Each structure stands twice: as structure tokens, then as C-alpha cells.
Computed example of a mutant assay.
Amino acid sequence: MDIELKTLTARLLAHRVVNRGDPLARRALLDDIFRHELDRRLAEVGLRLVENPYAEHIAVTLLPPMMEPVFGADDSWLNNNLGLPRDGVALLVILWAQIILPKRERQIARVEAGHENQSDMFGAQKPLETGETVSTGVSEDALYADFGKALGGRTRFNANLGRLANLGFVVRRNRMLLEGPMLDLMIDYSQMAPRIIEGALADVLGRRQALAPDGAADGMEAR
């Protein structure tokens, strides 16, 4: 088991993500003893495993007590350790909201529908829906039309998209932005989703409804 733990840990650090279908990744998710030892070894260097049943990959991130020592504090606080500028982080959050939030809604709906129609005694052990079957892309042109000027203009927008693609957050294909292996892992859905849905998004929709002519707001759809 020792060599397998070393191999998986080294791959997580070297490649940043490992597909959850990989034999060692599956063992980390299903073997309690293996997972406990993996968690212990990662914790010794201030890291923890990141995974969720809806994501196709696993990765590592900092333990909460390590946030301040790594990112600094007060005026020297870094908003990320990937070299992203503030407008790059803002673009990342926008992409997460437009790709992951709708995907998660579809995944949860499918799981709930499956539970309602479940008739076999082993149905609960079936894997959850993941991957491109439920993930849709975002048009680069539409994204720039909506947010490009606020994010620094065409040059900054393209530069930040390139950074996010290189880091594995998105895949650029025929002027469409598709989910990359890091996008569903590096932002905590349980914390971010309520902030977007109940906070910033609610404010935006509220302002649009206030400014729209009577009845116009009813026809608006999320992209």
C-alpha cells in the first residue's frame, strides 16, 4: 500500500488532478483504510484531498489552517496562488456560475428522479451523473459581450481566458468554453452557490426586473 500511496500523492502534486476512474483514485474513494492513510500523509504537508461525487476528477488543496501562512494576511493577502489577477479571478467565478451551477442542477435533478423511480435494491450504489453528458459550454463571444468591458477589455479578457485554460479550469474549443478538470473542484459549491444565487445574482436579477418594461423580465432566461 505504501508505494500506491506515494504514487497517488506524487501524481496529485505533479498533475494537479487525477481522473476519478483511475484505479488509485477509485481506491482512495472506496477503501476507508487507504483513504485514511492518504488523508494523514496529505495533512502532514498542509493539504487535503478534494473530491465530490459529481466531479470527474480529484485534486488536492490547502487545509484551512494553512490558508493564512500560504496566502499571507492583511495587506499582503493573496487572493490565489495561481498567479491570477483580480479580473482573472472574477472571470473564473463567472465561468463557474455559468457552467457548474446549471450542471449541478441537472445532476441533482437526475439523481432525485432516479431515487423516485428506483426499484432495484442496489440502485443507491450506482454512480452519479458526471461529465459532458450534463455539462454545457459557454460562448466566448456572448461572455465577452456580457462582461468583457467590466473585465478590462478584449486584451485582458483573452489573456485571462488563456491563463484559465492553461490551468485546467476551462477548455477552449471553436470559440466555446467547456468545463476543464479543475473547474468543479477548486471552488467550494456549498459556499459559493448560495452567495451567487442568493446574493450577487439575486441583486442583478432584481435590478434588471426593476429596469425592465412591464412583462419583459418574465421572458428573460439565464444563459
Rank of each mutant, 00 (worst) to 15 (best):
M1S: 12
M1I: 08
D2P: 08
A10D: 09
R11A: 10
A14V: 07
R16W: 07
N19P: 00
R20I: 07
D22T: 00
P23R: 05
A28P: 09
L29Q: 06
L30K: 13
D31P: 02
R35N: 11
E37P: 00
R41C: 05
G46H: 04
L47N: 04
R48D: 10
P53H: 13
A55D: 08
A55E: 05
H57D: 14
I58V: 15
A59C: 14
L63C: 02
P64T: 02
P65A: 01
M67R: 01
V70M: 06
V70K: 02
F71Y: 09
F71M: 10
A73Y: 13
A73L: 13
D74H: 11
S76G: 15
N79Q: 05
N81S: 07
D87R: 05
L95G: 01
L95S: 03
W96K: 00
W96S: 00
K103T: 08
K103A: 08
E105H: 10
A109Q: 11
R110P: 00
V111D: 11
G114L: 12
N117V: 08
N117W: 08
Q118N: 14
K126S: 13
E129F: 12
T130C: 05
T130N: 04
T136L: 12
T136K: 11
G137A: 12
V138L: 09
E140K: 05
Y144G: 02
A145C: 03
K149E: 15
K149Y: 13
R156H: 13
F157H: 12
R163T: 03
L164A: 06
L164C: 06
G168Q: 07
V170C: 04
R173D: 15
N174V: 00
R175C: 01
M176C: 09
M176K: 13
E179C: 02
E179T: 02
G180W: 03
P181D: 02
M182C: 14
L183F: 09
M186P: 01
I187H: 02
M192W: 07
A193T: 00
R195W: 13
I196A: 03
I197E: 09
E198V: 00
G199E: 11
G199P: 03
G199R: 10
A200K: 06
L201M: 02
V204Q: 01
L205S: 04
A210Y: 09
A210D: 11
L211W: 08
A212G: 07
P213K: 06
P213C: 07
P213L: 08
E221C: 08
